[in-house]
Nucleic acid binder design. Structure first.
Lengths: 121, 121
DNA sequence: TGAAACGTTCACATCAATGTGAAGGCAAGC
DNA sequence: GCTTGCCTTCACATTGATGTGAACGTTTCA
């Protein structure tokens, strides 16, 4: 599909889809006339990118971890693909994500606790 | 304590502590000479603010929900304090936080799954 | 008293994510 | 063929969270 349709399907402005490409998050094919051409799964990928951005990750971090998401099965099973440095980077990023999750969970619970307390009074 | 000590205790630059005050997230007292004076609990509050910012929340949202965090007990139990609009706002914010948690959890799991798959090969 | 360390405000700079518009090429229908 | 809508690139503006530095007052201590 072309960029306009992807934009409609995802609700993400075309400007941003081009920006994500510039940031190496998306890699659409190009038609003869230069038009970008996206495969079906791009819809899901864009939603994933949006979710991560909204969660406070930068495009740089997303670029780094994106190749390893959505691929628990279809993995390049050559062990040399996973250098120790890369493994460390992924673990560190998972840890930082975990910290965010805990922070957000605490505060979500606090909001709920507040609402419950006030309502039961 | 003064701003420098709070900065050392939290690792947050004084510039940012002043910025958070400008954004109505912190409200230190002022000494006669104009120096800011923070109470002990400010340390925890600053850490909380940082956690929320790092999780992708804006200062505007943090300003709105901050008064209701950390107060499951010491609540203004006057029911008129919780207008329906305010309750809606808090619920909506809790929902959006929940979405972030789910997005981050999915991707943390994906990273772990990738690492596990590659290592067991 | 003078230096060092800290505080104040003001202001300009940066960076990432995004908005917006110009100027022009391509495509599909009337 | 012309209009309409989509596509391209280029470029400048904006917003929120920061960095950084100037210019100046305060506290501390030798």
């Amino acid at each position: 599909m072309r960029i306009g349709e992807l934009s409609r399907l995802t609700g993400v402005p075309t400007r941003m889809l081009r920006y994500y490409e510039e940031q190496d998050l998306l890699h659409p094919e190009r038609a003869d006339n230069g038009y970008r051409h996206y495969p079906e799964p791009a819809v899901y990928q864009v939603q994933q990118i949006r979710g991560l951005l909204d969660s406070g990750l930068t495009t740089e971090i997303i670029r780094r971890i994106l190749p390893f998401l959505n691929k628990p099965d279809e993995i390049h099973l050559h062990p040399q693909c996973l250098t120790p440095e890369l493994a460390d980077l992924l673990e560190a990023e998972a840890d930082r994500i975990q910290q965010r999750i805990e922070c957000l969970s605490r505060n979500r619970d606090a909001i709920h606790a507040y609402l419950a307390a006030v309502r039961s009074s």
